[in-house]
Write a protein that binds this DNA or RNA. Structure first.
Length: 432
RNA sequence: UCCAGCGUAGCUCAGUCGGUAGAGCAGGCGGCUGUUAACCGCCGGGUCCCUGGUUCGAGUCCAGGCGCUGGAGCCA
């Protein structure tokens, strides 16, 4: 009798007869032997089928197998004769479950970006994409475990929102029973309400930006984790972000070494992600840029090139805090010690990945908040519920948002965020 | 929205000075080897993105359009 096992479980069954089910990834054939490379989602293994081990019909059928045929394979688990620590299966029976109706579009050779994106549903089966999916999963699980382990409560934010919280130009508008509704850009305002209910809240869900951005760092639909904590100040907020990133990186290093190896990720770069992260003020960052010959001056926003310049000076994420108030959102609290600055922070990932986290302390004074919303020319009536949070026991609070895809791109060292999400939505792509 | 580059076989690409279409891979057939993106031989495979223009002649030059890629702005 053979046991039904996954590829990942094979090393525990050396010497036993097992049955595997999976898909043919590649095949190398000789006159008297076939080498079938089979993947089942848990891993990939080589199945050796010798002419004398199976019936003549079964051996002949192996000869005609094409890529992505789904198979049931029975055989004995052996150590690989040439590769120490690797096992293989000596097949005694091969049964076709599903035969491809045509040539599988994605061969193990090179393909262009557009072609691969058109076949994203099939591209996911490749080793590299499989590795990314698993790292993404581990990062998300680590985020959840991190907050859950610190007394946070997951509070889901709505996807449909009635108003624009940071201007309408970057929002997707939908028809909500005759009224306009927008797909959420951020759950933050709702998390502020949640923080007053549970103290420490976080949400994790999809967010939408209609920006006409076509860069390696932008998606129209991306997943964001947003913690919000009552009675937390900017310094505490930065520590929270720092602890979270260290936790995530440690978890990935502990559980996803094999996937990082598939991605050819230099793990020593991740191993240096330890506390403390450098903290520099925006003003200091401008000074660093000036020294490097960059023309940026106080009041300018820090663009992609500038972020790379700053972050390349460090071997771990760098936190840039206290940006000028004018270039930040209305809900940022002003720095009582610097009339020009806001109590906010951006966390820049190393190796040129730039901003992965944005956050800060929120304005908790009703009068100031009202004035700033007017200055930003936003409709006051839409924010009445938000003002209630200041009317009924206002409290200092802070939080941040981290884009999961940018985090995955950095940890996997991917050239583009489109590979970090199973089915990316971008400026010119809505399918598959 | 703006700037730059690209569009040739199923896929990845080459195609010189404007002269009538080429390779590798994939597919088919055969061979061979405990093979590792296996290898060797043979075969089939083209709306050269579209429209118009220049020319005896356009994959090649020009104009417009479409698509893709990267970047800027904006952001996570």
């Amino acid at each position: 009798m053979s046991t039904l096992v996954s590829v990942a479980e094979l090393p525990a069954h050396v010497g036993e007869s097992v049955t595997l089910r999976g898909w043919l990834y590649n095949k190398r054939s000789g006159k008297n032997v076939h080498f079938l490379e089979v993947r089942d989602g848990s891993g990939t293994t080589q199945v050796v089928v010798g002419a004398s081990d199976v019936s003549a019909e079964a051996f002949a059928e192996c000869d005609g197998l094409t890529q992505e045929t789904s198979l049931s394979i029975t055989g004995t688990v052996h150590a690989h004769p040439k590769r120490p620590g690797v096992v293989e299966v000596h097949g005694t029976g091969v049964t076709v479950i599903g035969r491809p109706s045509g040539e599988f579009p994605i061969s193990p050779k090179e393909h262009g970006t557009d072609f691969l994106m058109d076949h994203r549903h099939l591209w996911l089966r490749s080793k590299r994409q499989h590795a990314i999916l698993r790292v993404r999963h581990t990062i998300i699980k680590a985020v959840r475990d991190f907050f859950d382990g610190r007394g946070f409560t997951l509070v889901d934010a709505p996807i449909f929102t009635p108003n624009a919280c940071e201007g309408t130009s970057t929002l997707f508008e939908t028809d909500y029973h005759g009224d306009p509704a927008f797909l959420t850009q951020s759950g933050q305002l709702y998390m502020e309400a949640a923080a007053a209910a549970v103290g420490k809240a976080y949400c994790f869900g999809p967010t939408f930006r209609a920006e006409k951005s076509k860069t390696r760092r932008h998606l129209a639909e991306f997943w964001m984790v947003e913690p919000e904590v009552a009675f937390l100040d900017l310094a505490g907020d930065m520590e929270l972000a720092e602890d979270m990133l260290v936790f995530i990186v440690e978890r990935v290093l502990a559980e996803r070494r094999a996937e990082l190896a598939v991605l050819e990720r230099d793990v020593s770069k991740l191993e240096s992600v330890k506390k403390p992260f450098p903290r520099i003020t925006y003003e200091e960052a401008i000074g660093v840029l000036a020294k490097a010959g960059n023309p940026a001056k106080y009041g300018d926003d820090i663009g992609g090139d500038e972020e790379t310049l700053i972050s390349s000076a460090y071997d771990r994420p760098v936190m840039v805090h206290r940006y000028p108030r004018e270039i930040k959102a209305f809900y940022m609290k002003g720095d009582p010690d610097d009339p020009r600055a806001a109590l906010c922070v951006d966390v820049l990932a190393p190796e040129g990945y730039g901003e992965i986290i944005g956050g800060g302390q929120r304005e908790d004074d009703l009068e100031i908040l009202t004035r700033k919303i007017q200055e930003h020319r936003l409709p006051l009536e839409a924010f009445q519920w938000y003002f209630d949070l200041r009317r009924y026991g206002s409290f200092p609070h802070a939080g941040f948002g981290m884009g999961i895809e940018r985090c995955v791109a950095w940890i996997c060292k991917l050239p583009h965020v489109r590979e970090t999400i199973p089915f990316p939505r971008m400026l010119n792509r809505l399918s598959p």
